[in-house]
């Protein structure tokens, strides 16, 4: 049976201010073994104190996001074998970036969800709307919105964004993506309010189209496209108001 070396970034701010790497030799039991399976194997067979989060194990819940070999990914959705490249291969697992570490691979996603709350992430229906109001599946509006509603709030994009690190006030990709999904939805009446929130110094204008968020999204959401869509709406509104065409 092939064995690979799993390096895990460990430590907690209270116990030990310096984080350290610990290596575990993990047998690859099956070809379909994921990074999460390896972490569970370590916890059960080597060190029960290893801390990480997980829930669904099938890529739906967005709980097990970590940094694997320098790349954000869901531990459950990343296969170990190809990463390690066979016997003796190395796989490094770190907690998500830009979020405070609680212990080992467990981070505090508070900032991430605070930013989400800032954009008022739920739909504000108009007074005339009676449930259920459905957008036709083949309408252009539905097709624009659909991919952006796939978000599972795993925080991978926030960790991958090079701007979110230095500026913790930046709304971040997930919140902006959510705002785009709602702003593009004709059933939502809080459009102006939301545009105002995101078109701020620490919102839209802080995005420099680096595309890291789009690259790591486990749901393949074109996040950068959403942010650019919001920018264009604000620019168009602004120019319209300047040339008095918006009245």
């Amino acid at each position: 049976m092939d064995t690979i070396s799993l390096s895990v970034r460990r430590g907690s701010p209270e116990q030990n201010p310096t984080a350290y790497w610990q290596e575990f030799d993990v047998p690859i039991v099956e070809d379909t073994m994921s990074v999460l399976d390896a972490l569970i194997w370590v916890q059960r067979n080597v060190d029960p104190s290893l801390a990480f989060r997980r829930a669904c194990r099938v890529g739906m819940c967005g709980t097990c996001g970590v940094v694997i070999n320098g790349r954000e990914g869901l531990a459950c959705g990343t296969l170990l074998g190809p990463l390690a490249g066979g016997e003796g291969g190395k796989v490094r697992v770190q907690p998500l970036r830009h979020l405070p570490v609680i212990r080992d691979l467990v981070t505090d996603p508070g900032v991430f969800f605070d930013h989400l709350r800032q954009v008022d992430p739920s739909l504000t229906p108009g007074p005339g709307l009676q449930e259920p109001v459905v957008l036709s599946p083949d309408s252009r509006e539905r097709q624009t919105i659909s991919p952006h509603r796939e978000c599972i709030y795993c925080g991978l994009c926030y960790s991958a964004c090079p701007v979110a690190g230095p500026d913790s006030g930046f709304l971040g990709p997930a919140a902006l993506n959510r705002a785009f999904a709602l702003v593009s939805d004709s059933r939502d009446v809080a459009r102006n309010q939301r545009l105002q929130t995101v078109a701020s110094e620490q919102g839209l204008w802080r995005c420099h189209t680096i595309f890291e968020c789009t690259a790591v999204c486990p749901k393949g959401i074109p996040i950068t496209r959403a942010i650019q869509g919001l920018k264009r709406r604000v620019v168009v509104d602004k120019l319209k108001s300047i040339f008095r065409l918006g009245r």
Partner: peptide, 21 residues
């Protein structure tokens, strides 16, 4: 489609001009 931003809301659109210019 709802209305574009009101002038009050426009004022709050901070950081637009540096970005645009």
């Amino acid at each position: 489609m709802s209305a574009p931003l009101t002038s009050q809301q426009q004022k709050a659109v901070a950081g637009f001009w540096p970005w645009f210019l």
